[in-house]
């Protein structure tokens, strides 16, 4: 690494600080907005220091909200994001295991079929998927929110690539030790995959949390709304002037769970990176 001195150091730090400021300022402004009253916000100039209405605004957002209580929507989003993340990991690790370690007819076909689904994101198959979910009576349910989104070619690939780096001798040693396929998966492969699972979990949780179009289509009852679509609905439209402090509070709350997941899992992720050795 090149060691910079004097002016170089100052310049580097300046660039970094400006970058961070550009990213953080809107978030800070959202937080400030969530502690003011509606009139303080819409009357320019908007104050840049937090006001005294933090508790009022947040308790209103959590319990009442505008269309539905934010607490309820946060729970819906959390269930959906967890469901998608865990479901995707469970399904893709098992399919990658099958593809890498077993010889069965049409193995390569299965592999390519999974590969092809990469070309079909939710938006492309949304109409037929909606049809299926509606016919199965899963509208306005957690199952309906989660199930169509948990097939994942990307995660399957990541696990496949990782499994291919596991030395064959390890598989053979386990066979000689008497471990059957399930035992090998549970005792050897799963513990070795912890880092990959942690990394994928972070990515997939945020993917699930940020889903907008799919929940918008299949949830019609306000109490099944997710926070991301809820936020959109809280935005003032046309001649409505909205309730900005509560909307800002909801936005701040909506950011917290993904941030928590990133911070918590990153530790595990880094720890795993340092500890694992093949």
């Amino acid at each position: 690494m090149v060691e910079k001195q004097g002016f170089g150091t100052i310049l580097m730090h300046a660039v970094l600080i400006i970058g961070i400021a550009i990213v953080c300022f809107p978030i800070y402004l959202t937080f400030v907005g969530s502690t003011l009253t509606h009139f303080e916000i819409i009357r320019p100039p908007m104050p840049l220091v937090p006001g005294p209405h933090f508790i009022d605004n947040y308790s209103e957002a959590l319990t009442a909200g505008i269309t539905a209580p934010v607490g309820r929507m946060l729970l819906n989003s959390f269930v959906m994001a967890m469901g998608i993340a865990i479901g995707k990991i469970a399904i893709s690790i098992l399919s990658a295991y099958a593809i890498v370690y077993f010889r069965f007819p049409f193995r390569m076909f299965a592999f390519w079929a999974i590969f092809m689904t990469l070309m079909l994101p939710v938006e492309v198959r949304i109409v037929p998927t909606y049809e299926v979910v509606a016919s199965l009576g899963m509208l306005n349910s957690y199952t309906g929110l989660i199930l169509p989104l948990i097939a994942s070619a990307t995660a399957t690939f990541l696990f496949r690539q990782f499994f291919m780096t596991v030395p064959d001798e390890l598989v053979e040693a386990a066979r000689v030790d008497g471990a059957g396929p399930l035992r090998f998966f549970k005792d050897i492969l799963l513990p070795l995959s912890v880092t990959n699972i942690a990394a994928l979990f972070v990515i997939l949780f945020i993917y699930g949390w940020n889903q907008f179009l799919w929940p918008l289509l299949i949830t019609t009852k306000p109490e099944m709304n997710t926070i991301v679509m809820g936020l959109k609905q809280m935005m003032p439209t046309a001649d409505d002037y909205g309730n900005w402090p509560v909307t800002m509070a909801a936005a701040t709350l909506a950011v917290l769970p993904p941030v928590a997941v990133v911070i918590f899992m990153q530790r595990l992720f880094v720890k795993g990176l340092v500890e694992t050795e093949k």
């Binding site: 030395p167 001798e169 390890l170 053979e172 040693a173 005792d187 050897i188 513990p191 070795l192």
Partner: peptide, 12 residues
């Protein structure tokens, strides 16, 4: 029982 060239110990 088998001993492998690269030991094949379970790393975890």
């Amino acid at each position: 029982a088998m001993v492998f060239q690269n030991y094949a110990l379970y790393p975890h």
